[in-house]
Structures are given as C-alpha cells and as structure tokens.
Design a protein around this nucleic acid. Sequence first.
RNA 1: CGGGAUGUAGCGCAGCCAGGUUAGCGCACACGCUUGGGGUGCGUGAGGUCGCGAGUUCGAAUCUCGCCAUCCCGACCA
Length: 489
Amino acid sequence: MSKVITPKEQDYSQWYNDLVIKAGLADYSAVRGCMVIKPYGYAIWEKMQSVLDGMFKATGHSNAYFPLLIPKSFFAKEASHVEGFAKECAVVTHYRLKNSPDGIIVDETAKLDEELIIRPTSETIIWNTYKSWIQSYRDLPLLINQWANVVRWEMRTRLFLRTAEFLWQEGHTAHATREEAVEETEKMLGIYAEFAEKWMSMPVIKGTKTESERFAGALETYCIEAMMQDCKALQAGTSHFLGQNFAKAFDVTFLNKENKPELVWATSWGVSTRLMGALVMTHADNEGLVLPPLLAPIQVVIVPIFRDEEQLKKINEVVGNIRKGLTEQGISSKYDTDDNRSPGWKFAEYELKGIPLRIGIGPKDLEKGTVELYRRDTRQKQFVPVDGLDRYIKNLLAEIQENLFKKALDLRETNTVKVDNYADFKDILDKKGGFILAHWDGTAETEEKIKEETKATIRCIPLNNIVEEGKCIYSGKPSKQRVIFAKAY
RNA sequence: CGGGAUGUAGCGCAGCCAGGUUAGCGCACACGCUUGGGGUGCGUGAGGUCGCGAGUUCGAAUCUCGCCAUCCCGACCA
C-alpha cells in the first residue's frame, strides 16, 4: 500500500532510494548529505563488521583508534595526497560559540591557531604517529586497522553509495620491504574479494586502477569491482600500495639488521558502508530487499496464522520446538505473533526486509504436521514436514546463499563483452551497458577522451590478465591486454 | 557551482491560473467492532504558524518581490 516501491525497470535510482527508505535501512537526516543508519540497516552493517573484523584479526591485524581531527599542516606533507582530498575537506576553525542578539554565533576570539581537518582518511595522522612507534626492523610489520567515520564533502550524495559522512574501516600497515608491503596489499584485496563473494554473494573482479583512478598518494591501487543489476560498475573495496611516500613525508625510518636506516613501506585498505548499497543493488527486487543468509540479521521469520488465542497456543507449542531446533543449528529466527497485523501484511513486510526464509504455520499445518516454507530469493513456496525442519532449513539457507551468487554471476557474465572497435564500444554502452573488455593504449589522454565521449571509465586492469596483442579501440596504438570499461557509480 | 522543478498533517498529494465561511483527500496513527493461508472491511477520532519574510488588498495557501530548503539533470568523487 504505502510501502510500494518504484519498479526498477521504471526508474532504477528511485527504486534504490525507495528500497533503502522503506526497508528501514536508512533515513535522510537534518544534515545535508548525511544519513541516519536505522537499526535494521545498522544490524546488517554490524554483521559485515564482525565478519571482516574476524578476518583482519585472523591475518594478524589489531584494531586501534586515531583522532577524528587532523592538523591542517599534516595534509600538506604528501603533495598528491593533499591535492586529491583538498577539495572535499571539512575544516574546523573555531572552538567556541557565544550568545549574541542574533542568537548563538561563532566566537571570533576563539579562532584556532592551526585549523583542524575532519579526516577524509587517516594516512597523515597515522603516519605521524607511526614515526614514534617504529625504530627497528623488530617493530615491523606494524599491522593496524581502525573502524571509524570519515567526512568527504561531496557535491551530490546518495544513500550509502556516497554520503558526506560514512562509516568504514581503514587498515594501515608498515613493512620493512617493498615485497612484503605489496604482498600485504594483495592479501587484503583477497580478503575483500572473499568477503564479497562468500558472505555478500556478490561476485567481484580483482584488479588494479589506472593512474588517473588511483588513490591520492598511492603507487598502486588495487580494487574489487562488482556489477550492479543496472549493469553499472561499483567499486566495492580498495587496497593501496603506498610505497615509501608517507614514510618520506613523515620521516618514518627503521634500522635494519645491518644497523642502517631505511624508509618504511606502507599500505592502506578500506571498505565502507557503501557495501550496504552494493548489497541492495546486487540482489534486491521489486518486492524489496533480498539478503544473503549469512548477512541477514534474521534468517527465518515465523508467521502464525490463527483466529483465536486457543489456536495460537497450539501453534506456539510447535513453533517453540522449531525455534529450539533452529537455534541448535545456529540459525537466527523471529516469531511474529503480533495480532494487529494480518498474515498477508506480515508476508509483504518481511519480503520488503529481505528475510531469506519465512515459515507460515496455521491450523491446517498442525493437522498435517507441516509448515509452509517461502524462499525470498526464488519467491517459491513449499510444504515441509516439521520433523527434520531445522536441518532442512540449514541446507536451504546454504543453497540460497549459493543461488544468489550464481544469479549475480550470471548477470555479470551475460553483460560482459569483448569489443574491438570504438563504434561497437559506443553502441554497447548506449544500448545495454555492462562491462566491456577492450584494448587500451595505456595513456591517460585516451582514457580521458573515452570518458568525455562515452561516460565510461576504466574500472580496472584485471589481475592475472591474459596477455594478448591488440590495438587500442580509441587510438589504434598497440596494446598487450584488455581492460574493463564501464559506467560506474 | 550552472540548468530545471517542487515546498500545503508523519508520508504522498489536491486546492493556487480566475483571492472570499471552518483548507481537503489517500495512506499511516489512536480507539471499537470485524477479519486472519498474500498488505481485511466498517465506524469514530486526533493531527496544519499552507517553507520563511516583506508587500498588494477590506480579505492571501492563492497575486508580487526577496530569501531559504529539497529533489532531478550536469561538472566533482569511496
């Protein structure tokens, strides 16, 4: 009724906005460009956090926390880093308010000697700190992660995909050798890819960015790219090899085994609440959200169908046993006995929320010893005996997790094409979009021209790419490999 | 920051052009009955500085001017 969402075929952006709002993931806030993450959305983010955090810990990383506010001078120390972020920094200039006839105003006498930048990312404050933590090769590697909020003053924002403030994790590591730092960068990319594919059921392509898409201050930026249902690309995570740029800027050296000073090698890597947007745009449909079981705050919802207290009481008994079985299998469930809502209303509501499985149970089921089981991903119903239901559901949840991945992979594969001339390239972008594998001469000029003319950018140069001779689709110059072009979020 | 549009109840809108009783409607909300296997139906009720500020007028949601905010489309970006 009031909760209908715009069909995605009609207006994909509106569909996305409706879904995020109506499924209760987030809300617009009083602050321009900032959003409120609502409990249901935050519960999903917490699941993501907890899985990722476990993966970071398992690979030897520790969490720490660095300040939100960064002295302006720190930013100036790494030239390309400043340049990259300068345009979107929020700046704190004063530290006091006062009363005036016009109300509360900034107290001009309380001006900071040095302005503070609200972190858009923490490399500078962290490397300033690492200087005092690192003296010897014995202090390395230093493997730190932080969960934090950051602010980037964006011109145009979209819920989860691009907001002025967002939540993320940023890993910052220090190493004795270049090889070790590169290895770390690739290892973390691997963790992101594994998380995306296994937990989010979202297939990704691992690759490196071109110079123009590279992180400000990095020597190499690795990324995972996913295809959304509208065939546009979304960068879902990045991992940067920073070389010695920040070590130089902040004078971070260590004594090696030969007692000689050397500059430290650095990496940084992050994923953000943008993953929430990726999750929505990878699986959701016109009925609402579709959550992969491994990230669903509630995996099974149970809706009783009853006329009176007596019937409900009988249902309660059976449901009690079912839930006990589910808990033993490590499956989370919710039993909704609210009698102000009709079963039909609840069905629609839990579909909107993307809960993977729904059990419907009423008088007819009690007689037959069955329940009605509804799969959110395929929207199919089946009747299943109560006996052995928990094990059945456990398998089914795994199957759903797998099926979601396959569906998303199918979409990507049918919308990925090799193209060898610019006319076809433009034609495909106009008609259906998707990922285009094409030869590129390796120059920023060509990349820029193609972007201007078609809005498509080079999403990445896939890792382990096949070496093949070819000609750049734009300039005709020789090329040794294909790169992925797409329109992106 | 340019181009376009919109601000009326929590949300979605009508009313405005042709100013005139008490500003309506749908959803949501509260209460009662009803219903319950795909958003049940009926009744009752509560809820408004008509974005803000000036002006014109006997009288402004409606006309004029200014301001503010939001959304869409561009330029910029995880």
